[in-house]
Design a protein around this nucleic acid. Structure first.
Lengths: 232, 232
DNA sequence: TTTAAAATTTAGGCCACCTTAATTTTGAGG
DNA sequence: CCTCAAAATTAAGGTGGCCTAAATTTTAAA
């Protein structure tokens, strides 16, 4: 009776915890209780309790006072949720006319209610997309996810040409603002200038070419791909 | 502060109870505890407990030992769920290639997770349909529902021409069987014969015309519209 | 009219998940 | 090495929603 055999039922709450841990743990470090509590808007003791249960279920490894890491099973379950979330976001924007700033909340609820079959049907209808509307990679059905290397706009060197690859889907207001600037994944631009002391970055983009000034905080959350320089 | 003002949050469980009561109460009679328990696959005492809570919330009127009836607010909430369910079923069959026998369970989960906005977007994408794939009328956004008069096939007089209007969405096997016979809402047929003692009904339908024999139990669940006879 | 069967409610308990308050562990600075 | 604030855990308690067993009410049949 292997661990893979018991494809257990996970509560909505458990699914949320796993997805959150996955996202916090992307840096490789164990996820801390307080970060999880923060992300889920829950009191820390609730997290402690749940961590004990999750580790008894073999979904995380919990070293008390140190944090948790997903096990293989936990990671698979988390990636399943991530796939659902991103497929749903893509479907809602592409097929039902949602704006990219309003899909996150809807997906947050739907991801717990859809069946695997529905997810795959949506993916099929979309032509198995690889990225969601915010530029985030969509894990495959078998839990494989691309791990791109991003550089925040705030760190793209002046003079460089880069492409905006990914933005956070969390803040609707920020997304509406980005849309108003024409800043969405896939857009190319050149970094013209950057002021020191966490100052704004100036870029040029679009057709006809236009200059934009982007504040430091916002620039930090705009993840870009820089064309890799030839190694000479 | 009118009762309509407090558009309260309803738990998933509450939504299920209200929808069930609505469906049981269609005859006009109060819904009985045991019927509700039966429909929701729940023990009767659990229902009693919930009835007390629902009546304290003003969603039902509970006369102990006699059953419950929806209040205005309860009925509105129930119809909202019915609309969701039927819009979702229609969307899944029309836009995502689901068969009519598999949409019920999916809708049963999704109806609790979708937002009003998503429901309306789906309805819009479908052109505001009036009936779901099983022929059931879809309530409007404001809670108005058509109440057609049906005659079960088992009671349509021999010699009559009628149209199949509605079938139950509950039993996937029955739905697959009906599909294999070509029996779906909208199909017209003539009743050729019926055996007594709850025997089968024979109908002719289709192009080219074909005869079908339908057992009594199945015939009871096939709701038909008979062209109203001229009053002469 | 009595009384057994059926339906319902009350009583008491369990589980999942959340809370606040108290306690323990950790690790940075003196 | 010691102190102490921050972080995490344990303890204790609440709510929602379900259960079973027992008590009660209704019903319908003898």
């Amino acid at each position: 009776m292997s661990a893979a055999a018991k494809e257990q039922f996970l509560s909505r709450s458990t699914e949320d915890y796993l997805k959150t841990i996955y996202e916090l743990q992307r840096s490789g470090e164990p996820a801390q209780t307080s970060s999880i509590a923060d992300a889920l808007q829950i009191a820390p003791p609730s997290v402690s309790g749940m961590m004990k249960k999750l580790s008894e279920s073999g979904l995380v490894e919990h070293e008390p006072y140190r944090g948790v890491q997903l096990t293989g099973a936990g990671r698979r379950a988390a990636l399943r949720m991530v796939r659902r979330h991103r497929i749903i976001e893509t479907y809602l924007t592409t097929k039902l006319g949602y704006d990219w700033d309003s899909v996150h909340n809807e997906a947050e609820r739907l991801e717990h209610a859809v069946s695997d079959e529905l997810v795959e049907r949506m993916a099929m209808a979309l032509g198995n997309p690889r990225y969601d509307p915010h530029g985030a990679p969509i894990p495959t059905k078998d839990g494989v996810i691309e791990v791109p290397v991003y550089v925040p706009l705030s760190e793209v060197p002046v003079g460089e040409v880069a492409e905006l690859s990914r933005v956070s889907d969390r803040d609707p207001e920020q997304l509406r603002f980005l849309a108003s600037l024409g800043l969405k994944p896939g857009v190319s631009f050149e970094v013209l200038a950057r002021q020191p002391f966490r100052g704004p970055t100036t870029i040029s983009m679009g057709e006809p070419t236009k200059q934009q000034v982007v504040g430091h905080e916002l620039a930090e959350s705009l993840l870009c791909s820089v064309a890799p320089r030839e190694v000479g």
